[in-house]
Design a protein around this nucleic acid. Structure first.
Length: 196
DNA sequence: CGGCCGATCCACT
DNA sequence: GTGGATCGGCCGA
């Protein structure tokens, strides 16, 4: 059920970003399992992508994990407040990553509501990269973790996604990336898709 | 060092 | 539509 190491190590990060739609992101923290169906992703394509933290081969403590082989988590603090979760993909030394931008709450709804300080959970509480991290309990302690391990992982539960269920568009918040800001590297499930 | 700013979100108006 | 929260990464001196 868990996506395998070889899944993450395939070469084309844009294909992986598209293929991750409909897969299910899990965390298991303090014996609490929570999960959500991935409904929005963005590809960050290595050292040639001006929007990527690894653009032009930038290699720092923060970005080091991006250079590992595919199948590790890359979590970082954004705006001093929000934790953003990425999937590292591709072979070693090719710093590709997929940002998970939105999930549909699936397992552990009550625990997610508790983390969010809400009485209930709906899609709109997990429809942003900072929000879904809060719901799933993702913070820096889940950085640089194997996605084939038992703290954070992704499963294929065989929800069928068709090409027509996917909308491609430009990435959010990367205006600084010049011409690369125009790349169609963002993928959404269509809004009212019936998965079940 | 100092200073700028970000792969965001929410509460305002 | 605007601005504040909040802090670590990054770059240039």
């Amino acid at each position: 059920m868990k996506l395998s190491k070889s899944y993450y190590q395939s070469e084309n990060v844009v294909d992986i970003a598209r293929n991750l739609l409909g897969k299910v992101l899990f965390t298991s923290l303090n014996n609490k399992i929570t999960s959500g169906i991935i409904s929005e992703t963005e590809a960050y394509a290595g050292i040639r992508d001006r929007a990527s933290h690894a653009y032009n081969g930038r290699r720092t403590n923060r970005t080091e994990v991006m250079y590992r082989e595919g199948g590790f988590s890359y979590v970082y603090l954004c705006y001093g407040i929000h934790y953003l979760f990425n999937v590292v993909t591709g072979p070693e030394n090719q710093p590709h990553a997929v940002l998970i931008r939105s999930i549909l709450p699936f397992n552990g709804i009550d625990e997610m509501a508790r983390r969010l300080g809400k009485k209930f959970v709906s899609n709109k509480f997990t429809n942003g990269p900072g929000k879904l991290s809060k719901a799933l309990g993702i913070s820096m302690q889940l950085n640089n973790k194997l996605l084939t391990g038992n703290k954070i992982w992704i499963e294929d539960l065989h929800f069928k996604i068709n090409e027509g269920d996917i909308i491609a568009s430009t990435r959010i918040g990367v205006g600084y990336a010049k011409e690369d800001a125009l790349l169609p590297y963002r993928f959404n499930l269509i809004p009212d898709l019936q998965i079940f």
